[in-house]
Design a protein around this nucleic acid. Sequence first.
DNA 1: TCAAAGAACTCCTAAAGAGGAGTTGAGGAG
DNA 2: CTCCTCAACTCCTCTTTAGGAGTTCTTTGA
Lengths: 262, 262
Amino acid sequence: MAKAYERIADELRQSIRAGELKPGDRLPSETKLAEDHRRSVPTIRDALRLLQDEGLIEKQHGRGNFVRKPRTRVLRTNLRHQWEKDRARETEAERQQTGATEHDTGLGVNDLVFYAAYREIKASEEIAKALGVPEGTPLLERTYRTRYAAENAPFNLVTSYLVRSLVESNPDLLDETKEPWPGGTQNQLYTVGIEVGRVEELVSARPPTPEEAEELELPPGTSVLVLRKTTFDVNDRVVDVSDVTLPGDRTEMLFTTPLERW
Amino acid sequence: MAKAYERIADELRQSIRAGELKPGDRLPSETKLAEDHRRSVPTIRDALRLLQDEGLIEKQHGRGNFVRKPRTRVLRTNLRHQWEKDRARETEAERQQTGATEHDTGLGVNDLVFYAAYREIKASEEIAKALGVPEGTPLLERTYRTRYAAENAPFNLVTSYLVRSLVESNPDLLDETKEPWPGGTQNQLYTVGIEVGRVEELVSARPPTPEEAEELELPPGTSVLVLRKTTFDVNDRVVDVSDVTLPGDRTEMLFTTPLERW
DNA sequence: TCAAAGAACTCCTAAAGAGGAGTTGAGGAG
DNA sequence: CTCCTCAACTCCTCTTTAGGAGTTCTTTGA
């Protein structure tokens, strides 16, 4: 005695799983489905929404409903921290010589990064806690975005926070026209005399805010993966916190743990 | 010129973010909201669904719509691999002495684990690829569930796969009444003479299947976090693959990367 | 006193209908 | 041939109306 819209969703789900409807295929129109199933259009729409929330179909206003193509991309995360540390003391010239980016960040050479300059802010309650400083401490904040060239789709959205007093020896900090610290966080911190001792990464998934949904071009019903990276110096003080927001429907994160031999 | 249901959702979202509506509070009933906003009930329901998909409210049939209480739980993942390896050669007695479970798995002593015995299966295409064996290779598969006692809520859902030929020296394997390998994967593998060299963990988020949604008691609109753990031996052969499925609305995963000193 | 029945609330499923808005392709004007 | 307009198709928003189903509290009857 299942509900009509669930039965219809089941039926379509079967067709998709069985491969009768392949990724990219257009489903019959809502009116067509309504006639076929002897149901009203709103009921059909209820069924389609279920499938949309499961990530099986994608609705396109004016065009139709389509079976979604799965596409995922792996982001290598923790393995690159040691690599980055090893290279922090290289000169710019040396870095250009070895310069592998693909392997380490998951970014390709054609991918686009949109930087924004650092802004001065006061620590909010949440971020103060993460940085281990009192609320209201002067911070530097910036957000940047990356677009993946091959798919012409947004790849991530990064916000990072630094304690102002720790890094003010860098003069390019508030200059909008310069990328003040090429070469990643580790290198950035090395230039102001900080040695990194440990990196913690906290991963969670949640529904996007409306702003994130727009920014990352997320279809309704998909969630975002959030990675909060906390960097500690060798004295175990927090020196950097950054939040990476990734589209949950096309990202995987890889963590590698090498173990010592017996 | 925003749409009515979006405007109403915005308004309610504001109230929640501003704290006028606190976690646990009941929202005005749908008919009440409809009267207040001079809109039809279905329009109100559209607005509420938006908020539900954002994880801000929870609908309860017959009771009302409520502001959700955030509750998350941290799962420490990669740091425990080395720890587990170090202890794999301890005897059962030694293990009971040191036996810390809380720190390492995120599990408390009162939490409930429901085991199922291993079943013999043939490797499917996907899982064969993950294990690096030909399709159809004899495998052992089992699924188990954990419930978190304090919240009386499901905590995870684990399916693990082993290559049959690697582990058949363990006699308790297919005995339903015994937990064949107390002490975790590393210990399990040690008993059949395998030394673990590396662990890879691939994290992704996706909408739950209808079965997972029921099993993990997920409210509509929330996704699951999936962690595929691949264990390699010291010769870099895959010896174990397991999928951990976690409720996205109440789980965070922590990865720690210690770095070498200069 | 106590349990069963019921009223009054809640959200859920389903219908039919009207107009809006985005997309596509056919046909005609230049 | 190229560009523009328009018709026809798509999904989207919103309404009104009806009954179903879960929850809670009050009333009623033993």
